[in-house]
């Protein structure tokens, strides 16, 4: 059973969360600007330490321009240009098969796994093209985490699931350090209290919602800058869903989040920006309020009013 410490009716801001406290102790935003200053040697972000771009949207972390994706002979995405602002939740919505997952998987080069998939156009993280020849996908994916539609805990213990990323990347120098990373990540994912007595139990023994939070904890443990989520709640019941939504809402202060959903209500509840995809095209994008209250494109309007599913 998915016992969250909160109920969906409670406003998110009122929740006294270990995760939030943790985030406050560690000013992530600040760290993130700090690292800009001397990340020029980094293979991905070889940009100049320009001042943070402050627009109404916020600083742009990722940007795709004229992105075209083919699976073999069929084109799945057509000329997608979209910006992903920092520390906000960007929701990708649209009817199923419109290319949301495909787009999301371009952002951490997960499409490389699929033989037939061809990506053209540019995808930039900060100012560096992540499809550039010198880019190391291993490092890229460490910086851009991903949570999948169906919870996919490894057939290992809860502890080992979360410790997996830090271990492969060598993020902890000692057992204690690893323990604290695992604990912090589980706390941030609001799972710690439920599993603290059985960290050695297999990850697959958890309920669906817990498994998904475990996967989020697993992603957070690598300390990524951006988290991609592909319909993270679609396999979950409503209570587990609201738990994840609340979690996403507090994660956005520390991370930049891109989330695919085909529930408009969910997009409305948790996202600040919304992009509407239709048959491989980006039809409309803007602040969530604007897209939902006053969509420009008739296709968006139809979708929002429930005429296209």
């Amino acid at each position: 059973m998915d016992c969250m410490t909160m109920t969906p009716t409670k406003p998110l801001s009122e929740l006294p969360l270990a995760a939030l406290q943790f985030a406050q102790q560690k000013p992530f935003v600040l760290q993130s600007t700090e690292r800009e200053a001397d990340m020029t040697t980094d293979s991905v972000s070889s940009r100049s330490p320009a001042p943070v771009e402050v627009t109404s949207v916020g600083r742009i972390r990722m940007q795709t321009s004229d992105l075209n994706v083919h699976y073999g002979d069929t084109q799945a995405l057509h000329d997608i240009s979209l910006e992903i602002p920092e520390n906000q939740v960007t929701a990708l919505i649209g009817p199923s098969g419109c290319g949301k997952s495909t787009y999301l998987r371009c952002l951490n080069r997960m499409n490389d796994v699929i033989d037939s998939c061809r990506v053209e156009g540019s995808v930039k993280l900060d100012d560096a093209d992540i499809y550039g020849p010198e880019v190391d996908v291993v490092e890229l994916r460490a910086r851009i985490g991903m949570v999948f539609q169906k919870p996919n805990p490894f057939p290992k213990s809860i502890y080992d699931n979360v410790a997996y990323g830090p271990r492969i990347h060598g993020l902890a120098d000692s057992r204690e350090e690893l323990d604290s990373i695992v604990m912090e990540s589980l706390e941030q994912a609001r799972l710690f209290d439920e599993v603290k007595d059985r960290l050695q139990a297999p990850g697959t023994s958890l309920s669906g919602g817990q498994q998904q939070r475990l996967c989020i904890a697993r992603a957070i443990a690598v300390k990524p800058e951006i988290i991609l989520m592909d319909e993270p709640c679609s396999a979950l019941d409503p209570i587990a869903t609201s738990g994840i939504e609340a979690l996403i809402d507090d994660l956005k202060d520390a991370y930049t989040i891109v989330m695919v959903t085909h529930s408009m209500q969910q997009a409305a509840r948790v996202s600040q920006r919304t992009a509407y995809f239709h048959m491989g095209q980006l039809v409309e994008t803007g602040s969530t309020d604007k897209v939902f209250s006053d969509p420009r494109d008739p296709r968006t309007r139809d979708y929002i009013s429930g005429r296209i599913g």
Binding site: Q31, E34, R35, A142, R143, G170, L171, P224
Partner: peptide, 8 residues
């Protein structure tokens, strides 16, 4: 991701 971590 902090600097320290990325160097590691």
């Amino acid at each position: 991701m902090t600097d320290r971590l990325s160097t590691k």
